[in-house]
Measured scan of single mutants.
Amino acid sequence: QTQEFDNEEEARKAEKELRKENRRVTVTQENGRWRVTWD
């Protein structure tokens, strides 16, 4: 699953929550947008 964010702060917040659920999370930056991908 993927979700896009406008800034790193929001993306990192989402990453932190997903990691609490023991998910594999990848955060990438593309064209000024932050993308959080998880399984």
Rank of each mutant, 00 (worst) to 15 (best):
T28V: 11
K16Y: 14
E9H: 11
T28Y: 10
K16W: 14
E10P: 02
Q3I: 14
V25K: 00
R35C: 05
E10D: 15
E17M: 13
E17W: 10
E30M: 13
G32E: 04
V27G: 00
T37S: 13
T26K: 07
V25T: 04
W38A: 08
A14M: 14
E17S: 09
W34I: 01
F5N: 01
V25Y: 03
Q3D: 05
E8K: 03
Q3P: 02
F5H: 02
E21Y: 14
N7M: 05
E10G: 05
R12E: 03
E15L: 05
Q1S: 11
E4I: 15
K16V: 13
V25L: 03
D6Y: 04
A11M: 02
A11K: 01
R12Y: 08
W34T: 00
E4T: 13
A11R: 01
V25W: 02
K13D: 10
D6V: 07
N22Q: 08
E30F: 12
K20G: 12
T28S: 12
Q3N: 05
V25P: 05
V27D: 00
K20I: 09
W34P: 00
E17R: 13
E4Y: 15
T2I: 12
R35V: 13
G32P: 00
W38D: 04
R19M: 11
Q3M: 15
L18W: 11
E21H: 14
N22H: 13
E10R: 03
R19F: 08
A14K: 15
K16M: 14
E4F: 15
R12K: 06
T2W: 15
R33I: 12
D6R: 05
E17C: 10
E10H: 04
F5W: 04
R19Y: 06
G32N: 06
E4A: 05
R33N: 05
N7F: 07
V36I: 10
V36D: 00
R33S: 06
E10A: 10
K13Q: 12
N31A: 07
E10M: 07
E9W: 14
E17T: 09
T37A: 07
R19G: 05
R23F: 15
D39S: 12
R19A: 11
V36Y: 01
K20D: 08
K16T: 11
T37G: 04
